[in-house]
């Protein structure tokens, strides 16, 4: 996540990156999958910076420069622009040295890929989610002060329709279906500001209620307002310091208590949302193994923002916790 603001915001890195065809992807899937895409990555990764590594984890995350034929040009895992520039320059030099047959494949075929994005709800509702810490005293002074993260939220067409009253007339109200409100609380009202976090367990959601109210209907569109509350608290023993305390994790508690408010526009003809904004504001506490809260476990304010995503490829990424959806 730090790489977004360090390495990839560096102008010289961006200039070098323009000489490649760039992709971003989820390494756990690429490491564990068995389709042609994953097999190609596994071949590359076992030539790269983490080849053969098993401790402190077997992750192969990082940045790889390679060819479509499976030749690794260079790789690194860094948040330092200078190291990244060196890696990219080295990769381009190696590329120039390669004969054509090692650069391209005559026929890649049309392989079937096993990706979660195959479940993208084309006719449903897709939200872009952002999370960030809110003002507090004393203010942090390092990268954590302005850390932010993002995710995507998926609803099927049927689920999205259920977020609005069945009869779209002024004053009509409806609660969000409990399963959808609780899914939002478990998978999206989580503290991922500084890194990945697991979903709240089902029993950890104390309250998850959202209500939709139609405030106007005009020109084939209904305007809705949202109000709600969410409270989740989870207790147990788990690490909060990455790999440092994983052998003997201590007793922990984590949670998020938030108020929610928002508005949306629902188009009657298409039966789809064409505008959507939702804010969740409240207090988070505790941490998890990889969300960077070690030393920052006390309650502090956090905000989550949801808005309509575009259908651009870069916004068709599966929600981080989509397997919790039960789809």
């Amino acid at each position: 996540m730090i790489a977004r603001r360090s390495v990839w915001a560096d102008e010289q890195v961006a200039e070098l990156a323009a000489k490649f065809v760039s992709a971003a992807d989820e390494v756990h899937h690429l490491q564990r999958g068995d389709d042609v895409e994953c097999k190609l990555f596994q071949k590359l990764a076992e030539q790269g910076h983490y080849a053969g590594r098993t401790e402190p984890s077997d992750t192969r995350q990082g940045i790889y420069a390679c060819t479509a034929t499976g030749v690794l040009l260079a790789s690194v895992n860094t948040n330092e622009p200078r190291r990244m520039r060196r890696m990219l320059e080295r990769a381009l030099e190696r590329w120039q040295e390669l004969p054509l047959e090692q650069r391209v494949v005559a026929d890649l075929g049309e392989p079937v890929l096993k990706r979660l994005e195959a479940r993208y709800p084309t006719d449903g509702l897709v939200l872009h989610q952002y999370s960030r810490d809110l003002e507090r005293e004393p203010a942090l002074r390092d990268w954590r002060a302005n850390a932010w993260n993002q995710d995507f939220v998926w609803f099927t067409r049927v689920e999205a329709r259920a977020l609005a009253p069945a009869t779209l007339e002024v004053g009509a109200t409806t609660p969000w279906p409990s399963e959808l409100a609780r899914r939002l609380a478990r998978c999206h009202l989580v503290d991922n500001v500084r890194g990945q976090v697991s979903a709240f367990r089902r029993g950890s959601v104390e309250k998850a209620e959202l209500q939709s109210c139609v405030t106007s209907v005009a020109d084939g569109r209904a305007t809705l307002e949202f109000r709600g509350v969410s409270r989740a608290t989870e207790n147990g023993a788990w690490p909060v310091a990455g790999f440092k305390d994983r052998v003997a994790p201590g007793e922990q508690s984590r949670g998020f208590r938030a108020e929610l408010a928002g508005r949306a526009v629902f188009e009657l003809a298409s039966q789809r949302f064409v505008e959507f904004e939702l804010a969740a504001v409240g207090t988070r506490f505790g941490g998890s193994q990889f969300n960077g809260r070690d030393g920052d476990l006390e309650p502090a304010p956090m905000g989550v923002w949801f808005e309509l995503a575009s259908d651009a490829p870069a916004e068709r990424v599966a929600p981080a916790l989509v397997w919790e959806y039960g789809w």
Binding site: L30, Y64, L100, F290
Partner: peptide
């Protein structure tokens, strides 16, 4: 395009929640 590939692979999709 006969170009090299740059892959950013992270735990959690870099374009989503990582």
């Amino acid at each position: 395009a006969e170009k090299p590939i740059l892959l950013w692979a992270m735990n959690g999709h870099p374009l989503g929640c990582t």
